[in-house]
């Protein structure tokens, strides 16, 4: 009676939503992380202008992901959120502060420095929390009968701190290459200057995580060191992307560093997915265990098939409208 493998379709939809979110909110969070280090206040104006038209559209993917997870994989939702309780709070608080800073910084004059800190602090905390979530997912969760039974801070381990730092470095790289693409003059030069050290930091941290991950879990080790050698193409691609970032920055290319950084993120993400596939709540539950009822998945799928293309078209249109370089003193006030 079940015509399609709906949990599989939903896994692709949620997986697509996650990478869309990481790539799109990643660069604007990265701009926030880099904010305090910018050359001057005018540069900060331009940096914020470069992401202001698109950031909230980017965050819609997070909310859609949260609601979609509840609808399609309630077990993931009801295990991850309790397990990451404190982290989720930090993530939300960070996102709220930076969101409000977007609204008020342009209206403020004497209190502007406060909103600068809200923007930078919120972005940094939210990014770190997201990285820690990824680490916690790789680590797995202590469950019994489909319910989380671990402690409040189980998610906070040396490994998750490292993945948190990795996310900070990665988002900063997305942010700096975004600025290379969207700005010019001394701000762009600054972005070129910081990109290579950031790339180095990303490679070091991602490298340690890559080596560490197989030792965190038996299944991950088997996956990578058994006969499924085709997946080794992913880390190779990641390295090629890194080389491409290096070369394009060296040659002072505009768009390529950002594109290559997205490539680096996508290949790393796929590497993570194959490490744990098909477990969505490691170490125990697969995506089929975690799925909601067939009729519930179907009911929402029908609506989403209609809406997702519209959201995608609208997103593309927004980026098209705000294409090209952002100049100092222009645009958003």
């Amino acid at each position: 009676m079940e015509l399609f493998d709906l949990p599989l379709i939903w896994a692709f939809i949620i997986g697509f939503g996650i990478i869309m979110y990481v790539l799109m909110d990643g660069f604007d969070l990265g701009v926030g992380i880099l904010f305090p280090f910018a050359p001057n206040e005018e540069a900060r104006d331009t940096m914020m202008n470069s992401v202001a038209p698109v950031w909230d559209g980017n965050e819609t993917w997070l909310v859609l992901g949260g609601a979609g997870l509840l609808a399609a994989f309630p077990m993931v939702y009801s295990i991850f959120l309790p397990a990451l309780y404190i982290g989720v709070f930090l993530l939300l608080a960070g996102l709220i502060f930076r969101g409000v800073a977007f609204e008020f910084r342009f209206k403020a004059r004497t209190s502007r420095y406060l909103w600068n800190w809200a923007f930078a602090g919120g972005s940094t905390v939210a990014s770190f929390a997201q990285g820690a979530v990824v680490g916690a997912y790789i680590q797995g969760f202590e469950t019994a009968n489909g319910v989380y039974v671990g402690g409040a801070l189980d998610w906070l381990t040396p490994f998750t701190v490292l993945t948190g730092l990795g996310m900070l470095a990665g988002y900063s790289l997305l942010g700096s290459t975004w600025l290379i693409m969207k700005t010019e003059g001394y701000l762009q030069q600054w972005a070129y200057k910081i990109t290579l050290p950031l790339l180095l930091a990303v490679l070091v941290v991602f490298g340690i995580i890559g080596v560490w991950t197989p030792f965190v879990d038996e299944l991950v080790r088997e996956r990578w060191f058994s006969n499924l050698s085709i997946i080794w193409v992913l880390p190779v691609l990641t390295l090629l992307c890194a080389i491409q970032i290096y070369r394009s920055v060296r040659d002072r290319k505009d768009g390529m560093p950002f594109v290559a950084t997205m490539g680096l993120f996508i290949t790393t993400y796929l590497g993570l997915v194959v490490s744990r596939w098909p477990y969505v709540v490691p170490p125990e539950y697969t995506l089929w265990d975690a799925a909601s009822a067939y009729e519930s998945q179907l009911f929402l799928l029908l609506g989403l098939l209609f809406v997702i293309p519209i959201v995608l078209v609208y997103t593309a249109w927004t980026y098209w409208v705000f294409r090209g370089k952002v100049r100092a003193g222009e645009g958003y006030h």
Partner: peptide, 29 residues
Amino acid sequence: IVMSFQFGTNWSNFAQASANFLGPILSYE
């Protein structure tokens, strides 16, 4: 934004039990 995470963080048994109905409804919202 905070509201959509409250069900999971503080009321996870409810989220798990009612997701078949509330999940799609809240997603549609």
